[in-house]
Design a protein around this nucleic acid. Structure first.
Lengths: 253, 253
DNA sequence: TAGCTTGCGTTAACGCCGTAAACTATCGGT
DNA sequence: ACCGATAGTTTACGGCGTTAACGCAAGCTA
């Protein structure tokens, strides 16, 4: 039978989100070092030890913040993809729409990142020590949300491949140790894509992550003030890997 | 006239290096948070305020550590390149040797990184806040050493291009705003390479940085336990951009 | 309705941290 | 022999994560 929400559920559930959002606010306003338990509590009109009712430690709180950021990013990319699909020229084929969606997803990933550098640094910068161990821990929010984010791009990629197949390496062409790992990965994410497609997917991810994080972290500033054109170049590297020409034909823009 | 080294030069010059090395030791042993002034001083049998004789603040000390790491990495890559050249088959042409050197440089960058993840995170992870401002500050060791590191790969790249020219975009094919920035970059680093070569250089840097940092930060672990094959794939993406076939012909390995 | 339990907060305290100020010992040069 | 600089000390302040002990109010139960 269904029970009425207990006091714990009502109050506490609302407050954990408040804490996380306060932490994010501090992160954005004052940088990563400013996200201290005392500062969060101060901002909320509480005292620091009170936060221990909600999180076991400062680090656990941060991991929930990371999870929150991950899901927000995933949502942003997903909705940007849908918006692009809806707004696309209505006489495009389904396959062409997939191309539009793919490009929109990559562009939104970059756009969100540049608009949220502190958050991006938190989830994609140097990992908190002890992150390695997390893969063995159950029920960690970070891991789940990270996978959920990866799934957004993987779904996009899978749809594109099914509707507009492109050339991928055959299983025998894949380096054996990689092939074995791709098999594991495929079962982990319950995908039915061929291994070659997964290999291409990861290659695309390397490109996308590389160019975006380079830009966000300022590691191209030694050469360029505005790395935007480099992102476009990256997209032209990406396109042939998934059977597209780039820049896109005018009809798909 | 030449003066004998004053007491300041003798003692102080030796000790700043000691401090930096102690900081690095703590970084490697106990992680980035463990690099505190008190911990460094403790390790050296001193008290924390003594360190203020050598560095104006904790952050300034960290910037010197970053500079130290940058130069070490640059040295490692440079010597690995030389070693590879010396060890290479003696009946190779000069141009073929350049290929060997290029590959060796990229491999050493990855190898050093994986063997020094904490150091890599420090210099290439999410930037310390205030890094943006540093570009206006003079005499900052971090900036100089960062450029020095970049120069290693740029020299390698330039030599390869001169001895074994590959196809690059013409100036007119480069996106105008990027072209303008490349002109600035070229004068900044005193290079005489064509702009198209510099554009290709930066594209290679995106690829190399992306795959290596992805691996070092564990952002491929959601899919792969051992991302080494992905690095090889990245090299095969890189090779055609600079006119090489990859995997290399047996003679050049 | 009285009393007990539980959830959610407090205060106080411990040992870290970066940093500043005042002080001290030691050494080289005049 | 003294002076000034160098390189360290001690002490102190405020902020940090974390723990322990305590308080209060709402909810359930007898």
């Amino acid at each position: 039978m269904i029970q009425a929400p207990s006091r714990r559920d009502r109050v506490r559930a609302a407050t954990t989100q408040e804490i996380i959002h306060t932490a994010r606010k501090l992160l954005v306003q004052d940088g990563p070092e400013a996200v201290s338990l005392r500062a969060i509590a101060r901002e909320m009109g509480m005292t620091a030890p009170a936060l221990y009712r909600y999180f076991g430690s400062h680090e656990e709180l941060l991991r929930h913040v990371v999870a929150d950021i991950f899901t927000e990013l995933a949502t942003h990319v997903r909705t940007a993809v849908h918006v692009a699909a809806d707004a696309s020229n209505s006489d495009l084929t389904e396959a062409e729409v997939m191309v539009v969606k793919m490009i929109a997803g990559c562009r939104e990933f970059r756009a969100w990142t540049l608009a949220h550098v502190p958050e991006f640094s938190m989830i994609f910068g140097s990992p908190l020590p002890g992150m390695d161990v997390l893969h063995q821990i159950q029920n960690d929010p970070t891991i789940d949300c990270g996978y959920q984010f990866g799934q957004v791009f993987l779904d996009l990629f899978g749809d594109l491949f099914r509707r507009r197949p492109f050339s991928i390496p055959a299983d025998e062409e894949i380096e054996p140790s990689l092939r074995e790992q791709l098999v594991r990965y495929r079962t982990l994410v319950h995908s039915d894509l061929p291994l070659g497609a997964l290999q291409t997917f990861l290659r695309c991810w390397v490109l996308l992550y590389g160019s975006v994080s380079l830009e966000a972290f300022g590691h191209l500033r030694f050469a360029l003030d505005d790395p935007a054109p480099m992102f476009e170049l990256m997209l032209s590297d990406l396109a042939p890997m998934i059977g597209l020409e780039y820049p896109l034909p005018a009809s798909a823009r």
